[in-house]
Structures are given as structure tokens and as C-alpha cells.
């Protein structure tokens, strides 16, 4: 291996990496927010007793869980604008695709969390005369959410990994900036290694945090 590593070549481009990282966080943050909210809604629709609400939401969840993320990204960037007859920015397409994907996955998480609550809690609330809404709000959801936090944070980590795919539709996130820098410096090893290391630090730290959180939540049960 006669290669000479030279990371100093990248020094002038540190701000570029930083800009990319910022966009990564922006994308992940927005999609998490939208995705989890939509996911909660989907979960409620999916488990409702009104039949015409159940199966469309079930189909929607299946579609967005099973389609590969890159296919979703590409579809929303190239195909969807044709469908609605309007143009779409790359960031918007990425937000749409990743939020819907996150919504579908988190819907199943929410449903599982709610169903994991002991039946007796439902009965105790009903015996007091609570309406379903009050029951959910005061008794079921507060307990369910505590259980759902570990899988939800795992989802967040998965989502952050997925933001890298947005580089293929020219969203200026971290990997895109890495490719740009490579095109300018012709040093793919340094460029991509730095990108990989940055992701590694963020995601590994995230995983450790999740594990710690899981342990802490497990204690209070």
C-alpha cells in the first residue's frame, strides 16, 4: 500500500462539510417531526373500529414500509411533479419521501406500544366511566409512550442514515458535499473517509444514548 494519506487537502473545505452536516440535521429533524406525527395518526386510523378507515391506512403503511427508500426518493423527485403538474425542490421531495417512510414504520411502533398496555388498564378506566378519548389521553398513551421511546429513537437513527440517500437527488447534505469535495480535490479516500467518520461518530453516539435510555427506562418499570 503505497498511498500517502493527506487529510490537510480537505482543510479549506471544513465549512463545506459543516454545511452538509447542517442540512443532514435539518432534513432528519423535519422528517422525524412530520413522520412521527403522521405515524401516530396512521396508528390511530389503523386500529380504529371504523372499517373504511382501517384498510386504506393499512395499505398505505405496507406500501411505504416495503418500497425501498431510494425508490421513494426518486419517485417523489421525478415522477410526483409530473403527477401534480408542479415542480418540486429536491429538499421538498426528500422530506416527502422520508417523512412518509418514517410515518409508515412508526405507525407500527405506535400500534405495538398501545397494544402492549395491559387490558386491565382499559377496564379500570372504563369502570370509572371514562370516554375512550379520555382513557387514551390520561391512561393509555402516557404509559405507551414510555415503552415506545427506545424503538422510536432507533427509528431516528435509521432515518439519519437514510438522509445520505438524498444526495442522489442533489440535496446538499453531508454525503453530497463529500462528493462535491471529491470532485474538486480528486481525493476520494480522504473525502469519503471523513464523511464516513462523521456519520460514524454521530450514529454510534446516538446508539449508545439509546442503549443508556433503554436501560434507564427499563429500571423505572
Amino acid at each position: 500500500m503505497g498511498y500517502q494519506f493527506d487529510f490537510t487537502v480537505l482543510q479549506p473545505y471544513l465549512p463545506t462539510f459543516g454545511r452538509g452536516l447542517l442540512v443532514t440535521f435539518q432534513l432528519a429533524g423535519v422528517c422525524l417531526l412530520l413522520g412521527f406525527t403522521a405515524g401516530l395518526l396512521l396508528a390511530l386510523l389503523r386500529s380504529s373500529r371504523i372499517a373504511p378507515l382501517v384498510w386504506p391506512s393499512a395499505v398505505f403503511i405496507e406500501i411505504f414500509r416495503n418500497a425501498p427508500v431510494l425508490v421513494q426518493l426518486v419517485w417523489f423527485y421525478y415522477a410526483f411533479p409530473v403527477l401534480i403538474g408542479a415542480t418540486m425542490s429536491a429538499f421538498a421531495a426528500a422530506v416527502l419521501a422520508l417523512s412518509l417512510n418514517t410515518a409508515a414504520f412508526s405507525a407500527e411502533l405506535f400500534r405495538g406500544g398501545i397494544q402492549s398496555i395491559h387490558r386491565g388498564q382499559w377496564e379500570a378506566g372504563r369502570a370509572l366511566g371514562m370516554s375512550n378519548l379520555t382513557l387514551m389521553r390520561r391512561i393509555i398513551l402516557p404509559q405507551a409512550i414510555k415503552r415506545m421511546i427506545p424503538p422510536l429513537t432507533n427509528r431516528a437513527i435509521e432515518l439519519t442514515k437514510m438522509t445520505a440517500l438524498a444526495s442522489t437527488i442533489a440535496v446538499p447534505e453531508l454525503l453530497y458535499q463529500g462528493r462535491l469535495i471529491n470532485a474538486v480535490t480528486f481525493r476520494p479516500i480522504e473525502s469519503y473517509t471523513v464523511v464516513a467518520v462523521i456519520y460514524l461518530i454521530i450514529l454510534w453516539a446516538g446508539t449508545i444514548l439509546v442503549n443508556r435510555l433503554e436501560r434507564r427506562l427499563g429500571e423505572s418499570d
Binding site: H118, G120, A124, A127, L128, G129, K146
Partner: peptide
């Protein structure tokens, strides 16, 4: 159901609330 009280075999207390909050819950919400 407000006029009928029930006590269950498995208690079914609300674990995320203190004892007094458990007893207050029906009074406040219902």
C-alpha cells in the same frame, strides 16, 4: 358507570400516577 364502582382481581391501578392521583383521576376526568 359513574354510579357503579368496580374493584378488580388484578387491582388495575394506573402505574404512572401516585396513589392520590389514582384516586383523583376519575373525579377530575369524569
Amino acid at each position: 358507570r359513574r354510579h357503579v364502582g368496580m374493584v378488580f382481581q388484578s387491582f388495575n391501578l394506573f402505574p404512572h400516577m401516585t396513589v392520590v392521583q389514582n384516586v383523583m383521576e376519575g373525579l377530575v376526568s369524569v
